[in-house]
Design a protein around this nucleic acid. Structure first.
Length: 263
DNA sequence: ATGCCCTATGATATAGGA
C-alpha cells in the first residue's frame, strides 16, 4: 500500500498537478493539507473519476484537509475530539479515516507565527489535543496500523532545516514545539523519516528568494506511526520532482510504501 | 539543474504562509 501526504497550498490552484500526480505516483491513500476551499468547493468529481473516495473538510480561505483513498474510506472523523478553537473558530485542520485496515489522520498543525504570538500558544494547545486523540485511538485499537501524517509545522531536529542559524527566535524549531513532538511520540508513535535526497530530508521550500534551487528547505511534513504501521514500512521518500516547475506547491509529497496488499 | 513569492478575498490592498 502506498500512502502519501502533501500540503498542496490550494487544491483549486493545484488541481491539474494533483490529478497528474495521482496518475503518475499511483498512491492508494493521500492526505492533503491547505485545501484553501470549503468542503462543498472541493473538486470531488475529477478525483473520484481518478478512482478515489474523498473525505474533505474545509471552511474556506485557509486551512482545509482531506483524505483520498482507493482502498476503502471508513469511520471518517472530522476535527480532533476537543480540538481548541482559534479566534472562536474550530479550524479545519484534521480529518481521520480508516483505509484498507490502516487508521490515518491528515493534519495541518497551526503555524504559530511568532513565539510570543497567540497563535503559538494555540499551536501547543493543538498538539495537546492531537496527543490526546492519538492516545485514545491507540488504546482503543492497539494492534491496528495507525499513523498521523501531514504538515506538522515543526522541524524535529536541527538537521531538518538548511541552516539552524537562520532560525534564531523563529517558530518551527523551538524547544516547546519539539517537546510537543516528543510528547506525541510518547503516546506510542515513531518518526518515519524519508530517504534523504541529495543529502537533504526536506519537504518544504519557501517560494521566496529562490529557496528551492538554493537548497533552503525544511522537513516539516512528517509521518508519525505506531509499531504495527512502522513494521510494514518498506520505503519512505520525498517526491522532490513535484516541487519543480511552474505552478508547484511549496511542499513536496512525502510517500510511504507499506508491505501490505491493498484491501 | 529546480532559477530568485504565491493564494484567496467585501480584492486595485491585505492577511497568511513558515
Amino acid at each position: 500500500m502506498r500512502i502519501a501526504t502533501w500540503n498542496v497550498n490550494s487544491v483549486g490552484a493545484r488541481l491539474d498537478r494533483v490529478l497528474a500526480w495521482l496518475e503518475s505516483a499511483q498512491p492508494d491513500v493521500v492526505a492533503l493539507q491547505e485545501l484553501k476551499c470549503t468542503t462543498t468547493e472541493f473538486p470531488e468529481m475529477p478525483i473520484q473519476a481518478a478512482g478515489y473516495e474523498v473525505a474533505a473538510h474545509g471552511n474556506g480561505r485557509w486551512n482545509g484537509v482531506a483524505i483520498l483513498s482507493r482502498v476503502g474510506l471508513d469511520d471518517v472523523t472530522l476535527d480532533l475530539p476537543g480540538q481548541p478553537p482559534y479566534a472562536g473558530v474550530v479550524e479545519t485542520r484534521a480529518v481521520g479515516a480508516t483505509c484498507g485496515g490502516v487508521r490515518v489522520w491528515s493534519v495541518y498543525v497551526p503555524n504559530g507565527r511568532e513565539p510570543d504570538h497567540d497563535h503559538y500558544a494555540y499551536k501547543l494547545e493543538w498538539f495537546a489535543a492531537l496527543r490526546a486523540t492519538v492516545a485514545a485511538e491507540l488504546a482503543a485499537v492497539p494492534d491496528r496500523p495507525f499513523a498521523v501524517i501531514g504538515d506538522f509545522n515543526v522541524a524535529p531536529t536541527d538537521a531538518d532545516v538548511w541552516d539552524i542559524a537562520q532560525f534564531v527566535g523563529s517558530t518551527h524549531v523551538t524547544e516547546p514545539e519539539r517537546a510537543a513532538l516528543a510528547n506525541l511520540r510518547g503516546a506510542g508513535l515513531v518518526d518515519i523519516p524519508p530517504r534523504a535526497l541529495k543529502g537533504e530530508p526536506y519537504t518544504f521550500w519557501d517560494y521566496r528568494n529562490g529557496a528551492f534551487h538554493r537548497g533552503w528547505g525544511m522537513r516539516i511534513d512528517l509521518v508519525y506511526a505506531n509499531a504495527p504501521f512502522a513494521s510494514l514500512v518498506r520505503d519512505a521518500w520525498i517526491d522532490r520532482e513535484e516541487r519543480k516547475g511552474k505552478g508547484a506547491s511549496d511542499h513536496a509529497p512525502l510517500v510511504v510504501d507499506l508491505d501490505t496488499s491493498p484491501a
